[in-house]
Amino acid sequence: MIKVAIYGKGGIGKSTVTSGISAALGTRGYNVMQLGCDPKTDSTINLLGGTPPPPILQYLQEKGRPDSLEQIARRGFGNVVCMEVGGPTPGVGCFGRGMLTAFELLDEMGAYEAYQPDVVLYDILADIVCGGIAVPMREGFADKVCIVTSGEKMALLAARNIILALRNFADRNYAELGGLILNCRDMADEVERVRDFAAEMRTEVVGVIPRDTAIHAFEEQGRTIVEGDPTLPTSARFFDLAGTIVNFAAERNAA
């Protein structure tokens, strides 16, 4: 099993990228679990035809601790186990703490033993604005962190902050940096810009997703591009990324 946390600037396409990877892995026969970590609960909707699963924190508040994992999980395209942390109404509460509660609940309920996933993907909202948002990086949760970015300045700044946070915590045995995933915005020299940034930060670009209107067209239907048309060149990029994630697991097992 390999557990990968996907971080990146708000609106950069983390959920699109994460769901595309999950769909590609599921298509290839891997057991995948995707956990959306955003109060908007929209990480997994494109694996589920547009309908998200019951958010874990809302379930806890309204019904108490679930009796079984089925009450908070749904199977999506590619048999991917889809879950959403959920979270407070905008403007109140503490999402960071909520995320920790949801992660601990899954641990206590034996989610990883029950579903036996080959790959777990945590899709995490925006920047690491507080200690709670860094929870997936901590020991026992993610093994690797991948950062979705474009070539835009603000996206790269966010990526830099996330990498620095990871390196700050190196002696706490936090997750390792897996690399950058470039989600193109069609800037001039975008791939070079991001590759230069990666070199500066002593990491690498592990995948490039081109700007493609087909992605958005299929998302309008509640599907990923991988589900919509796996033969498209952009879908092939997701299959490549899926292969990279599987290699993380192989490297880890070898180590």
């Binding site: 703490r97 920790l100 200690g131 709670g132 901590r138 020991e139 915590f169 936090y174």
Partner: peptide
Amino acid sequence: EIIGTDLKGFARTIEA
């Protein structure tokens, strides 16, 4: 507990 302090991570740092 409320702010989710990573005491396990702190322990590793202090040990190092």
